[in-house]
Computed example of a mutant assay.
Amino acid sequence: MKKSSLITMTAFAAVAVLGLSGCAAESAPAGSTRACVILPDADSGTRWEPGDRPALEKGLAEAGFEADIQNAQNDPAKYATISDAQLTKGCGVMLLVDLQGAGVAVAEKAKAAGVPVIAYDRPIAGADYYVSFDNETVGALQGQMIVDGLAAAGKDIKTASIIYGSGDPTDGNAKMFLDGALGVLDAAGAKAAFTMEGTWDGAKAGTLFEQAFTAVKGKVDAVLAPNDNNAASIIQVLDKNGLTVPVSGQDASIAGLQNVLLGKQYGTVYKPFTLEVAKALEVIKAIFAGETYPTTKSNDGVPFVTIDPISITADTVKDVVAAGDATVEALCTAEVAAACEKYGVK
């Protein structure tokens, strides 16, 4: 599979999405420039608090909008309580990251109050827009990691023992990730030796993988892991059993990038949250201006503003550093220093 370059990424971010799908979204209530944001938790993918929150706060402030950004701390009931308080105070737009389906009811309340809703990163039925990376492409890149990793190891994918993992089934993105991966794996003739229960919880993923490892009697040739957090726990089990096999990932986290450099994880899908924030801000500005933001596709009837993800392998970890989304100091610890030198991470 061709590797995306940072030049391609930057060019894509600069090009306006053309065309229009779906019907026109609502405009913000007259006179309101308050953006209400609900983040789902403080740990999934380790991105919301250290990444999206400050970027959204900065972008909204620079655009002259008031921001109310809160975190539901992985509690759907708290998610509902936060939304009620925000809507009571008044919102010109709501940007919601869904949490176990809680976003659907909040979107309904917001729409009833005339407040447009942007589903951010995860789909929400009934939203006016869905802003996210192209999730089936994310999955396809993960599936390709398994195909390429097995080929590099000289193993026949049609007879390989592959453990399939996936994200939490209550997260609408998880199915799209898995569908994208299966599209590639099925076409290559791969079959699952064992399919794990879906989760985003790293510790739980480790336990589930222990069970899968026992079920296949320790014969594992590759693992389809939905993100770096899951992959890290799976790799711990593989390490304990003296195995190194192709493992996929997602998020380009520090731990994930380190595992990629060390050869313990074949690759990770890089989704620069800065691109997602920038695109969401464009949509918010359009809504406050009473305009309809152009889209090229829809997701279950919701106009979908897509962003291209990037596949990262050991050879391209340096690109994530060059983009400012990882530092040499964080990546190149004593254990990883030799690998950083080998792959030009500096």
Score class of each variant (00 low, 15 high):
residue 155 K to Y: 13
residue 64 G to A: 02
residue 6 L to A: 09
residue 132 S to D: 15
residue 81 T to P: 08
residue 247 V to Y: 05
residue 293 Y to E: 06
residue 119 A to P: 11
residue 159 T to P: 04
residue 21 S to T: 09
residue 160 A to I: 11
residue 272 P to Q: 07
residue 125 A to T: 11
residue 106 V to F: 08
residue 323 A to W: 04
residue 273 F to V: 12
residue 74 N to M: 02
residue 129 Y to P: 03
residue 232 A to G: 11
residue 64 G to E: 00
residue 216 V to G: 08
residue 261 L to Y: 11
residue 226 P to R: 08
residue 324 G to R: 13
residue 262 L to E: 15
residue 118 I to P: 06
residue 242 G to W: 02
residue 80 A to H: 02
residue 20 L to Q: 15
residue 101 G to F: 00
residue 312 I to S: 09
residue 76 P to K: 14
residue 62 E to K: 12
residue 312 I to Q: 08
residue 265 Q to T: 09
residue 187 A to L: 00
residue 182 L to D: 02
residue 344 G to V: 03
residue 218 G to I: 04
residue 323 A to F: 14
residue 80 A to Y: 01
residue 142 Q to K: 10
residue 177 F to T: 07
residue 161 S to R: 13
residue 243 L to V: 08
residue 114 G to P: 11
residue 300 D to S: 12
residue 14 A to Y: 00
residue 267 G to Y: 06
residue 102 A to P: 10
residue 96 L to Y: 04
residue 244 T to P: 05
residue 11 A to G: 12
residue 231 A to Y: 15
residue 27 S to Q: 11
residue 322 A to D: 12
residue 37 V to F: 15
residue 165 G to P: 11
residue 15 V to C: 05
residue 180 G to S: 12
residue 218 G to H: 02
residue 248 S to P: 10
residue 81 T to H: 06
residue 23 C to M: 09
residue 205 A to M: 15
residue 316 T to W: 06
residue 318 K to R: 14
residue 156 D to T: 15
residue 259 N to Q: 12
residue 19 G to E: 01
residue 75 D to R: 04
residue 168 D to W: 01
residue 234 I to L: 03
residue 281 L to A: 01
residue 281 L to M: 03
residue 233 S to D: 10
residue 317 V to C: 05
residue 42 A to F: 11
residue 326 A to D: 03
residue 43 D to P: 00
residue 96 L to S: 07
residue 208 L to V: 05
residue 130 Y to C: 02
residue 97 V to W: 00
residue 61 A to G: 04
residue 86 Q to L: 05
residue 154 G to L: 11
residue 321 V to W: 12
residue 288 F to Y: 14
residue 269 V to G: 10
residue 326 A to R: 04
residue 109 K to F: 12
residue 100 Q to P: 05
residue 45 G to T: 00
residue 344 G to E: 01
residue 146 I to N: 05
residue 304 F to N: 07
residue 31 G to A: 02
residue 173 N to I: 13
residue 288 F to A: 05
residue 52 D to G: 09
residue 22 G to E: 11
residue 39 L to A: 07
residue 144 Q to Y: 03
residue 228 D to A: 09
residue 208 L to Q: 06
residue 123 P to G: 08
residue 331 L to Q: 08
residue 125 A to W: 00
residue 245 V to E: 08
residue 44 S to Y: 03
residue 93 V to K: 06
residue 222 A to I: 09
residue 162 I to L: 10
residue 29 P to V: 06
residue 34 R to L: 04
residue 130 Y to Q: 08
residue 151 A to D: 15
residue 276 E to A: 14
residue 94 M to L: 14
residue 177 F to W: 13
residue 208 L to P: 09
residue 335 E to V: 01
residue 229 N to G: 08
residue 141 L to Q: 14
residue 15 V to I: 10
residue 188 A to S: 03
residue 313 T to D: 15
residue 212 A to P: 09
residue 104 V to M: 04
residue 86 Q to V: 02
residue 115 V to L: 08
residue 189 G to F: 00
residue 212 A to S: 06
residue 174 A to V: 02
residue 92 G to E: 03
residue 299 N to I: 07
residue 218 G to F: 04
residue 61 A to F: 12
residue 183 G to T: 15
residue 272 P to T: 02
residue 143 G to Y: 10
residue 221 D to R: 13
residue 222 A to F: 07
residue 65 F to T: 03
residue 165 G to H: 12
residue 336 V to E: 05
residue 119 A to S: 14
residue 12 F to S: 11
residue 102 A to R: 09
residue 30 A to S: 14
residue 79 Y to D: 01
residue 220 V to D: 05
residue 265 Q to P: 12
residue 123 P to T: 04
residue 222 A to R: 05
residue 92 G to I: 01
residue 235 I to E: 09
